[in-house]
Measured scan of single mutants.
Amino acid sequence: WLKDDEATHCRQCEKEFSISRRKHHCRNCGHIFCNTCSSNELALPSYPKPVRVCDSCHTL
């Protein structure tokens, strides 16, 4: 799980985070992405409801 202060850019699109481009953790891989690159939800065994995942984890 990557800490918020360790990420300054989206792991996928590499756009810089700002007040309007917020950080979101993928609940599967733990990396930090922008909203555009992590707008999917997936049912994971460790969560009772579908949770936010990055595009890469969603296509696995």
Results as ranks from 00 to 15, higher is better:
1 W>K: 15
2 L>Q: 11
2 L>T: 11
2 L>S: 08
3 K>L: 02
3 K>Y: 03
4 D>T: 06
4 D>Y: 08
4 D>M: 14
5 D>V: 05
5 D>Y: 06
5 D>P: 03
5 D>G: 04
6 E>L: 04
6 E>H: 08
6 E>N: 09
6 E>W: 04
7 A>F: 11
7 A>L: 07
7 A>S: 13
8 T>H: 12
8 T>F: 05
9 H>E: 04
10 C>R: 01
10 C>N: 01
11 R>H: 13
11 R>C: 15
12 Q>K: 03
12 Q>F: 03
12 Q>M: 06
13 C>Y: 00
14 E>I: 08
14 E>G: 12
14 E>T: 07
15 K>F: 06
16 E>G: 08
16 E>S: 08
16 E>Y: 05
16 E>V: 06
16 E>T: 05
17 F>A: 00
17 F>L: 07
17 F>S: 01
17 F>T: 02
19 I>Q: 13
21 R>P: 03
21 R>D: 00
21 R>I: 07
22 R>M: 14
22 R>K: 08
22 R>P: 05
22 R>W: 08
23 K>M: 09
23 K>P: 03
24 H>W: 06
24 H>M: 08
24 H>E: 13
24 H>I: 03
25 H>R: 14
25 H>M: 13
25 H>S: 13
25 H>G: 14
25 H>D: 08
25 H>C: 08
26 C>V: 00
26 C>T: 01
26 C>L: 01
27 R>H: 15
27 R>K: 13
28 N>M: 06
28 N>S: 10
29 C>E: 02
29 C>I: 00
29 C>H: 00
29 C>M: 00
29 C>T: 01
30 G>E: 06
30 G>L: 09
30 G>H: 04
31 H>T: 04
31 H>Y: 09
31 H>N: 06
32 I>L: 11
32 I>Q: 13
32 I>C: 09
32 I>D: 10
33 F>C: 13
33 F>G: 03
34 C>V: 03
34 C>M: 04
34 C>P: 02
36 T>V: 15
36 T>E: 15
36 T>Y: 14
37 C>S: 03
37 C>F: 02
37 C>L: 01
38 S>T: 10
38 S>Y: 02
38 S>R: 09
39 S>Q: 13
40 N>Y: 00
41 E>C: 09
41 E>P: 04
41 E>R: 08
41 E>Y: 09
41 E>F: 06
41 E>W: 04
41 E>H: 07
42 L>K: 11
42 L>M: 11
42 L>G: 11
43 A>G: 09
43 A>M: 12
43 A>P: 12
43 A>I: 12
44 L>W: 04
44 L>S: 03
44 L>T: 09
45 P>L: 08
45 P>Y: 04
45 P>S: 12
46 S>R: 14
46 S>C: 09
46 S>A: 14
47 Y>K: 06
47 Y>V: 11
49 K>G: 10
49 K>W: 05
49 K>M: 05
49 K>L: 05
49 K>H: 09
50 P>A: 13
50 P>M: 08
50 P>D: 06
51 V>W: 03
51 V>A: 11
54 C>F: 04
56 S>V: 15
56 S>N: 15
56 S>C: 12
56 S>K: 15
57 C>D: 02
57 C>M: 02
58 H>L: 09
58 H>R: 08
59 T>K: 14
59 T>Q: 15
59 T>A: 15
59 T>G: 14
60 L>W: 04
60 L>S: 10
60 L>V: 07
